[in-house]
Design a protein around this nucleic acid. Structure first.
Lengths: 244, 244
DNA sequence: CATATCTATTTGTATAGTCAAAAGTGGATC
DNA sequence: GATCCACTTTTGACTATACAAATAGATATG
């Protein structure tokens, strides 16, 4: 038998991840959940505290509990969004959409992405310029089934990574980081020599087992690095943490 | 006023991080902590649950609660240890200590490591061989002030990373991942050409603001990648595996 | 000898309350 | 209008207790 607090946790998590409860949506107050599940307040509290820790919920006395704005886990964030990182480091960041078209996945690509063949996707190529220098090529595929709004998005206001984060909560992400030699096309775009070492990040992001996006980001090895400072979870996380 | 459960949490965390309670040490049982702190069992339980989540404690019914073997934070994308990762992925792993000597840090290096000049360190160079192929050069510095036992350790039974993890809990880690061309020495050791793209990981690990170790690990770009699957703040698994 | 069973210990989950702290609301007063 | 205070809602911390589940260790059995 699944513990009650886990059932509550899972129910609410599912609603949020399914997009049923959007960010800002008010979660039933403890008292209501007590009634709904026929359990004690402590049990409800345990579930909600775990959701706070999971980053899906924020709580405030007197005001209530709300679905949190989707936020990348801080330890993943470090390699998440070039623009954010650049401006955190005090650099100027621009980007240019080099290509943008809607396609259907052929079977080879579909298999590669672990997705279904024939799905409609938006394919984007984007150059990131940090401090005046070309710093990354971003080649991205967005599944239009999962993110229909992408069809009409121009990415003029925010680059694809940032726009997606504001649209879709993610439930799973897979990263691969490699060192690769620059191919001809990449070398031209990044203004480096062919064969130069490049840092290559591939990320797939899912929402409830539906692929949201596949992206490959290639950085010149001499102009970019991934860095992060990590602490083992600082304040008590997970269960019954007060300050969040 | 600090909540009781936080006080308990902090007290125990401090003891573990200070090395006062070593991995495997039995933590007082809930009942004893109830007596010690004059609070209820639920409060103690909350603190211990948080410590479990924090990764510092493991608990088992009837047996008790124990200081966990130090582990890399699960949400951190990182190779905790090549050997472990390799065998998880089903590969055979060997390693060879190429060099081992005790030195004192000169001022240049000390500044680089953000440490004090004149400190005694153990400097190790180590080659990792996965599936019969040279897969990583590990160049490591261990601060003997922080880890005195390293002075007499031969690393015959376990490679430095694994040995350190079993010895020292960490409270902070800094990672840098880059793509670099192989220099002459590295190329020779890894049996690749000079200039070939290599994946380069630098990690510094601290225990309570005292540097434990500085390590630079260089992988051939075509034989290694970092990969990780993340679920926001859950129990992400990460796998760093040799590529074909 | 091995093996199955019982028992005591320790953690895990849950209840049904109490009191406290934060913070939004509205009302009294200037 | 503006300011301060009391009121109310909602979360945060905690108690004292209960019973369940896992299991190490002792005991009984074949």
């Amino acid at each position: 038998m699944e513990p009650i607090y886990l059932r509550i946790f899972n129910d609410i998590e599912a609603k949020i991840l399914a997009g049923d409860w959007r960010p800002g949506h008010r979660i039933p107050r403890e008292h209501d959940l007590v009634d709904d599940y026929g359990c004690s307040r402590m049990t409800v509290s345990k579930a909600l505290a775990a959701l706070v820790d999971r980053g899906l919920v924020v709580r405030k006395r007197k005001t209530g509990s709300f679905v949190a704005s989707p936020q990348i886990d801080r330890t993943v964030m470090d390699i998440q969004d070039i623009g954010t990182e650049a401006s955190l480091a005090g650099y100027e960041h621009r980007y240019k959409i080099l290509a943008r078209r809607i396609e259907t996945l052929d079977s080879v690509e579909a298999a590669q992405l672990d997705s279904t063949s024939g799905a409609e996707v938006l394919r984007i190529q984007c150059l990131h310029i940090v401090d005046g220098k070309p710093t990354a090529v971003e080649r991205r595929i967005i599944l239009l089934d999962t993110v229909p709004l992408a069809r009409i998005e121009s990415f003029a206001a925010a680059p694809p990574a940032e726009w997606l984060l504001s649209q879709v909560p993610w439930s799973k992400a897979k990263h691969v980081i490699r060192a690769v030699p620059a191919d001809a096309a990449t070398a031209r775009i990044l203004e480096i020599d062919r064969g130069e070492p490049c840092l290559n990040l591939i990320r797939q992001t899912w929402q409830n087992d539906r692929l949201v996006t596949y992206v490959e980001i290639t950085h010149p090895g001499d102009r970019f690095q991934f860095a992060g400072i990590f602490h083992p979870a600082k304040n008590p996380r997970h269960v019954d943490s007060p300050t969040g």
